[in-house]
Computed example of a mutant assay.
Amino acid sequence: MLNFIGTGSAFNTKLGNNSAYIKNSNSILLIDCGGTVFQNVQQLDLLNGIKNIYIIITHTHPDHVGSLGDIIFYTYYMLKSKVKLYFPEAAHIKSFFSNIGVKDEMYQLYSSANAIIEDSSLGKITLQFMSTAHTETMPSYGFIMNISGKTIYYSGDSNSVDSSVVKKFIDGQIDYIYQDTCALDYQGNGHLYIGKLCKLIPIQYRNRVYCMHLDTDMTESDIIENGFKVAAKI
């Protein structure tokens, strides 16, 4: 359902910063824009012919917003358009922009916890943001997204999966889960250890869970052997 520009954690430079997208015709929806993302977007020529750019931000760690300013500048100056940006904390994201020179007139911000995107190429997309357990230093969000008749939960960075999400997933109300997953288990970890994910998701449902934001100790075989799928970098 989602295409991935990168699938790595902050220090997993081999896989690149975790970022996903959906593209159709002249419209693209991006999820997060870490430091490696704009370069990869350019190398993949993803913005060729694009008129409408929608970006969902989960939180403002550098591996999730490091090149967000670059994409906004490029869209504004080169494509003569404005990024439509979705993040529930308006004051927080504007404070970030003020420090990197992104002006209010360069983008359109939608900061509601619930949002609707209506695009002629992508169709109708609904978003429901949910706070996640990741870090105490900034607000962090995952979201439930409905697109093309499918419902997706995207965790952003999180060391848990909310019980309401698990219930909806098992009941068939959520089709796919894209979950931040790591190989390390330690106190204060902001990411979800795969052993804990195994306890949350019964084995018969794991083939609809895609592990992403992988650290350098996580192997594809670890993920597959536990019944999950690997978010594949294009």
Rank of each mutant, 00 (worst) to 15 (best):
N40C: 02
V41D: 03
Q42P: 05
Q43C: 03
Q43A: 09
L44H: 13
D45C: 07
L46K: 02
L47A: 06
N48Q: 13
I50Q: 03
I50C: 02
K51C: 01
N52P: 06
I53Y: 00
Y54E: 00
I55W: 00
I56M: 12
I57R: 01
I57S: 00
T58H: 00
T60G: 04
H61W: 00
H61Q: 00
D63N: 13
D63I: 03
D63L: 00
H64D: 01
V65R: 05
V65I: 13
V65F: 08
V65W: 09
G66E: 07
G66C: 08
S67W: 07
I71G: 07
F73S: 08
Y74N: 09
Y76R: 13
M78H: 12
M78V: 12
L79H: 03
L79T: 04
V83A: 00
K84Q: 10
L85W: 02
Y86F: 15
P88W: 01
E89L: 08
E89C: 12
E89F: 11
E89W: 08
A90W: 03
A91T: 14
I93N: 12
K94N: 11
S95R: 09
F96N: 13
F96H: 14
F97E: 10
I100P: 01
I100Y: 06
V102A: 04
K103S: 12
D104I: 11
M106P: 03
Y110M: 08
S112T: 11
N114I: 07
N114V: 12
I116L: 06
I117S: 05
I117G: 11
E118P: 02
E118R: 04
D119R: 03
L122E: 10
L122D: 11
G123P: 04
G123Q: 02
I125W: 04
I125P: 05
T126G: 08
L127Q: 07
F129L: 03
E136P: 14
E136Y: 15
T137F: 10
S140D: 02
Y141R: 06
Y141F: 14
I144G: 04
S148H: 13
S148P: 08
S148N: 15
S148R: 14
G149Q: 11
K150Q: 14
T151C: 06
I152F: 15
I152P: 01
Y154S: 10
D157W: 00
D157Y: 00
S158Q: 01
N159I: 05
S163T: 15
S163F: 12
V165H: 01
V166A: 02
V166G: 07
K167P: 07
K167F: 05
F169T: 00
I170K: 14
I170M: 13
I170W: 10
D171K: 06
G172Q: 08
Q173H: 10
I174M: 07
Y176S: 08
Q179K: 06
D180N: 07
T181V: 08
C182I: 15
C182M: 10
